[in-house]
Structure formats: structure tokens, C-alpha cells
């Protein structure tokens, strides 16, 4: 018998539509409740259940590896058992609906903030949130940075009316726990401090060398940045500083802030 004929004879007649077949296969991959096995050819030394399991195993491993890659420090914090519990729960709760695995774990902070046992330890969700923000900064849109040269080329009389624009990678995030410090300790392979509640604000961005960076923000700097986001000009920032610290050299303080933002690479040129 020719090979083509031999292959053809393996298939019995089935009228299952493509739509139904795909639905049953996806049901099998996502929650086990599926009769797809009856539509799979039994052939050779491995059972159809074993054949299907190759896909099921790959489905779970692919998402586990994705979360593992995206959230390495979170994984260290949780340990293997809790990490596996998180992964299996998240895969079931948030099946991928995106064409890129880059976005698969976007809802992980929300999942951790709402699911037992993770929600009882809010630092865990914050760790996941921080790691996702690092990813956002890493591949955010490119833009030319605003440099000291740009500033010097500008006539001094125009400085008060300058409105600064952030580089697209800039993220400002508020945390209620010592989550970023915990992340830093684990990154340096040190034991983190116990979780403690304390409001803190962090700036994340991609610097002039395209490396992701972060640092904490004071209330004052955060307020200035919020003003910038709302379109206030440099003169308004200086007025705000003056109202808060009437006895300080405001022009020097404002210039220091501006130069640090320029040197850090958080401002974009217009």
C-alpha cells in the first residue's frame, strides 16, 4: 500500500466542525473538562491521552516560564511551593488573550491582591507591580532626551515658560510597603527586612544608555513631577518651591532638580 493511502485509511469519518474541535481542544488545555480525546487518532506506541498531554504540559510550562522570567525576584520571595500555587492559579484565572507573552502576566498584581493566601500579604502584589513597571520602562517608546545642551541653547528669558515633557519610559509608582527595598535586597542576594507598612514613591525610567533605572522620590520632588504632568511651566514649579520653603535659595534648588532630571535622562526633548 502506498504511504498516502496508508495514512488516509487511519482516519475514520467524523463530522466534527473545525470550530467545535478548536473549542474542545482549548477547553482541554485550559481546564481539563473536554471530550477532545475521542477525536484524536489512536496510533502507534503512545496513547492519545499521552499525545494530548504533550500539549497540556507545554501549555502550562510555557506560561510558568513566562512568569518566572518576568518575575524572578517575586519567585525568590515566594519560594517554589507558593510560586507554583500562584502560577497554576493565575493561568486558570487569566488565560492569555494576547498575541504576545510579553503581556501575559499583566494582571498578576491584581490577581495577587485579590487571591488567598497572597492578598493577606500586600507586599507580594506590590513586588509584582514593581517588576511589571520595570518591564514597561524597558521597552517603552523611544524619544530623544532633553539635554543640558538643549537648555543652554535656550535664551534665559524663555526658561520660566519652559514646560518639560517626560521620557515615555518614565513611571511614577506609589507603594504602601517596603516592597522596592525588599526587591533590592533579594536582587543582591541578601535577606530582606520584614514587611513593614510605609508609604513611599518611586520613579522608574530608561536612562540615556537604554538601561532601566529607579530611585525613590521625596514628597517635594513627586509634587513637582505631578505639576509637570499637569502641564505647569518651570516658573510655576519655582513658585511652588518658594511657597513650601520661603527661606531657601529657590533658584538653586530648582536648578538642581532640573539638572538631575536632565542628567538622569527622564526628560524628553520637544
Amino acid at each position: 500500500m502506498k504511504n498516502d493511502e496508508k495514512n488516509k485509511s487511519k482516519y475514520s469519518v467524523s463530522k466534527l466542525s473545525l470550530h467545535s474541535l478548536q473549542q474542545q481542544m482549548m477547553n482541554y488545555l485550559t481546564d481539563d473538562k473536554s471530550a477532545v480525546a475521542q477525536h484524536v487518532v489512536e496510533h502507534g506506541g503512545i496513547s492519545r491521552e499521552a499525545r494530548l498531554h504533550i500539549y497540556k504540559n507545554a501549555y502550562q510550562m510555557r506560561f510558568k516560564e513566562t512568569i518566572d522570567n518576568d518575575h524572578q525576584i517575586l519567585g525568590m520571595y515566594l519560594g517554589d511551593d507558593l510560586f507554583d500555587q500562584m502560577v497554576s492559579g493565575y493561568i486558570k484565572a487569566y488565560p492569555s488573550n494576547n498575541t504576545s507573552l510579553r503581556n501575559f502576566a499583566d494582571s498578576l498584581p491584581t490577581f495577587l491582591a485579590n487571591q488567598i493566601p497572597f492578598k493577606d500579604y500586600p507586599l507580594i502584589s506590590e513586588l509584582a507591580h514593581f517588576e511589571r513597571l520595570l518591564m514597561v520602562a524597558f521597552d517603552a517608546k523611544d524619544a530623544n532626551h532633553f539635554t543640558r545642551e538643549h537648555l543652554l541653547e535656550m535664551p534665559h528669558k524663555h526658561w520660566p515658560s519652559l514646560v518639560f515633557r517626560f521620557h515615555p519610559s518614565v513611571q511614577i509608582a506609589m507603594f504602601n510597603f517596603n516592597s522596592v527595598e525588599t526587591w533590592q535586597a533579594l536582587k543582591q542576594e541578601q535577606a530582606p527586612e520584614p514587611a513593614k507598612q510605609a508609604a513611599n514613591i518611586w520613579l522608574l525610567w530608561r536612562n540615556n544608555d537604554r538601561l532601566t533605572q529607579f530611585r525613590s522620590l521625596s514628597q517635594q520632588e513627586h509634587h513637582l513631577m505631578t505639576m509637570m504632568l499637569n502641564g505647569h511651566d518651570f516658573a510655576s514649579l519655582c513658585d511652588n518651591l518658594l511657597s513650601q520653603s520661603p527661606n531657601e535659595d529657590i533658584s538653586q534648588l530648582a536648578l538642581n532638580y532640573l539638572l538631575s532630571w536632565i542628567d538622569d535622562g527622564i526628560l524628553a526633548s520637544h
Binding site: 470550530h19 478548536q22 473549542q23 481542544m25 482549548m26 485550559t30 500539549y55 492569555s96 488573550n97 501575559f104
Partner: peptide
């Protein structure tokens, strides 16, 4: 994938 779920696998067709 199907039904708005993506397996991110290259699944065979009938």
C-alpha cells in the same frame, strides 16, 4: 488559540 484564548502553541489542524 480560539474563543479569545491564546495557547501560544502551534496547534495542528485537521
Amino acid at each position: 488559540g480560539a474563543h479569545e484564548k491564546n495557547s501560544h502553541d502551534l496547534l495542528p489542524l485537521p
